[in-house]
């Protein structure tokens, strides 16, 4: 049988837990990493706009936005980021991004060119598919400000990507995070012949 003292302590403990939630929320707001919604634990994934740490909770429009968990419900799943496989979603025509803000009928010019970048060690080489990127983006979004469209003109390193440069301008922020190594390092090295 639980003693009265224990019950009272339990009640006070409950009270403390409630307060702790408030305190935790306040601390999370001050955490510099809290903005990165792509690295959040399951309980905090795809929070509604008013509490996602990105939108202004005081803006009228914020409350009018559809919560991501609701809008993502019918989309193919992914293991990371915002847990949606956007490439598959566009391939299956579950989403049809508009390519021109003024012209709803404008068609995106999709560029089917792969670039393979060799890397050292047993890490598979990187395959950069223009196709999947130009289904969402225009050439001018990346060229020449982020990448100069010329062989050998771009020094790309994982360190710079992790610091938010080059591919890291999007990946880890609005595209899948760099912890998904195999999604870019996808071309295995040839097996050495004995």
């Amino acid at each position: 049988m639980i003693s009265l003292r224990t019950r009272a302590i339990t009640s006070i403990g409950l009270l403390a837990s409630i307060l702790a939630v408030f305190v935790h929320a306040a601390v999370a707001q001050d955490n510099p990493n809290a903005f990165n919604r792509l690295m959040k634990p399951p309980s905090e994934r795809n929070a509604p706009p008013e509490s996602d740490g990105i939108h202004d909770p005081t803006a009228d429009g914020t409350l009018m936005l559809q919560p991501p968990q609701e809008s993502f419900a019918g989309l193919p799943k992914s293991r990371s980021g915002n847990y949606v496989n956007w490439s598959k979603a566009i391939e299956n025509e579950l989403v049809t991004p508009r390519s021109d803000i003024h012209d709803p009928d404008a068609q995106a010019i999709v560029f089917d060119l792969n670039i393979i970048r060799e890397v050292k060690g047993s890490m598979p080489d990187v395959v950069y598919p223009h196709k999947q990127h130009t289904q969402w983006l225009d050439c001018s979004n990346c060229h020449p400000a982020i990448f100069i469209p010329m062989k050998g003109a771009n020094q790309i390193s994982m360190a710079s990507i992790l610091m938010g440069e080059k591919c890291g301008v999007c990946h880890g922020k609005v595209a899948f995070p760099v912890s998904e190594c195999r999604r870019c390092h996808s071309k295995p090295k040839p097996v050495d012949q004995p």
Partner: peptide, 22 residues
């Protein structure tokens, strides 16, 4: 002019795979 250039680059490189050697 931009769209014309973009289309021409797209036609020229369509289906290609380029290798950037280390």
């Amino acid at each position: 002019a931009y769209v014309a250039a973009k289309l021409s680059v797209e036609r020229a490189r369509k289906g290609e795979t380029l290798l950037r050697e280390l």
